[in-house]
Design a binder for these strands. Sequence first.
DNA 1: AGACCGCGCATTGTCAACAATCTATATACT
DNA 2: AGTATATAGATTGTTGACAATGCGCGGTCT
Lengths: 226, 226
Amino acid sequence: MSEAAIQTYTRADEAFDCLQTAIVKGDLVPGEKIGEVELCSRFNLTRGPLREALGRLESRGLLVRRPHAGVKVVSVSAEELLELYRIRETMEGLAARQAAERMTDEEIVDLQATLDTHERMIEQAQGQAYYQAEGDYDFHHRIATGSRNTKLAQMLLGDLYYMVRMYRYRLSTSSGRPHMALGEHRRIAEAIAQRDGELAEFLMKRHINAARNNIETKIQNGSLTI
Amino acid sequence: MSEAAIQTYTRADEAFDCLQTAIVKGDLVPGEKIGEVELCSRFNLTRGPLREALGRLESRGLLVRRPHAGVKVVSVSAEELLELYRIRETMEGLAARQAAERMTDEEIVDLQATLDTHERMIEQAQGQAYYQAEGDYDFHHRIATGSRNTKLAQMLLGDLYYMVRMYRYRLSTSSGRPHMALGEHRRIAEAIAQRDGELAEFLMKRHINAARNNIETKIQNGSLTI
DNA sequence: AGACCGCGCATTGTCAACAATCTATATACT
DNA sequence: AGTATATAGATTGTTGACAATGCGCGGTCT
C-alpha cells in the first residue's frame, strides 16, 4: 500500500511490509510462534530477506525473538496498551504544537479537507469501524508529518502507530465515539489553522487522553479482553 | 562489552553491537559511505549476519540505506539535533513523572547513590567530558527504566539516546555545565524520592531544555560545528 | 508410576557462490 | 570543450546448501 515512491524495492522491503501489515491486520496472532519456513512459503520469499525483515520488526518491537527458538508476534498487555496512549499523549501534543508553527497553509487546507471526507465516511459507513480507524490514522499521520520533526514523525509513524493499529483492527477500539472524535479533530485543526501551538497541544493531549479513558473503561467493563 | 547475560549470542547480535558502538564512538563517521565487505573484514563477520544487523540499525535511524548503493551513517543537522532535545523534553518528562510514581524505594536509593559517584567523578576527572557524559547517561537510563513503561524505555534507550550520545562523544556537549547538571539531577532525584511526579516532570523538562539551550548557544557562537 | 537421561528430528543460524543493479571511466558526438 | 552514452568493474541483493542449537519423544532406572 502506497510504495510507489520507492525506485527499487528489494525483497527484504517486501517481506517487511507484508509482515508488518499481517501483524497489524491480525493475520498473525500475538503470542503465536511462527516458523521461518512457513512464513517463506506464505509470502513467497526466501529466508535471507525474510530474516532481514524479522530483524527490523524485532528492532521496532513488533516481534520478539529468542535465539534458536523462533519468533513470535509481541503480545501487549492491557496495561502496556494504556501506557502506549500515555506516550502518544505527550508526543502527539508536541507534534501538534510544532505542526501549528510549521505546517504550510496548503497542508492545513488539506488537513481540514480530510476531515470533511471523514465526516462523510462516518455518515455513510455507519459503524464501519475500519474506515473510522483509518480516518483517524490519516489525521494523526498528517500532523506528525507536519511537525517537520524528522525523528518525531519517524517514532510516531514507525513505532507507535503500528502497535496501536494492531489492536485497533482487532478490537475496533475507536468505535462508539466517532462523532466526538471528529469534533475533537476539528478543533485541533482549527487551532493549527490559527497558528495557536499551545492550544493545539492542549487539545491534542486531551483528545488522546479521552481515547485512552474510553479504552480503559471498556477494559474495566470486561467488554474488551486483551 | 557486557554480553554475559545473554545465553546464546548470535553473530548478528555481535555485528549489531559492534556497529552501534562504532557509530556512537565516532569510529564510523556520519555521511561516510561504508561497504559491506569492508565492514565484514573489520569486525570479522560474514555478510549474512552483517546485513541483518544493518537492517536493525537502519530501522533505528542510525544508518541510511539506498538499495544497491550502500549504507552510510546518518548525519544529523544542527536543527535535527535540537529537535531531538525537544522530543527528549516531553518523553523524559513523562518518564520522570512515572518513575516518581513507580520506582521502588531501593531503586531511588541507588539513583541517589549514583549521583554521589558522579560528583566524585566530576571532581576527580576535571574536564574529562567522557565520564561526565556517561554519568549523565546513567542517570537518565535509570529513570527511563524506572518509569515501568516498557515502550517508553525502549524508545528512549533504543532510539533517542544512541543518537544523542553519538554527538556527545564527538562534541562533548555536556562540558561546561557539569556541576549545574549535577545539581539539576539532584533536585529531580529529590522530587522522585518525595513521590512528587508533577515536580519531577517539571524539573526534568527544564533540565533537558537547559541542555538544549546550552547546545544552541554554542552552535550560534560557532564553537560547535556539525 | 513417576522422573530423569539420551537420542533423533526439526528449526534456526551461518556460509559461500550466483545474479542484479549502480557508479565511474572512457569514448564519441555536438 | 562540454555533455551524453555505453561499457566495465565493483558492490549489493538473493539463493540454496551446510552447521549448530533447541525441543520432544522414548527408554530406563528408582
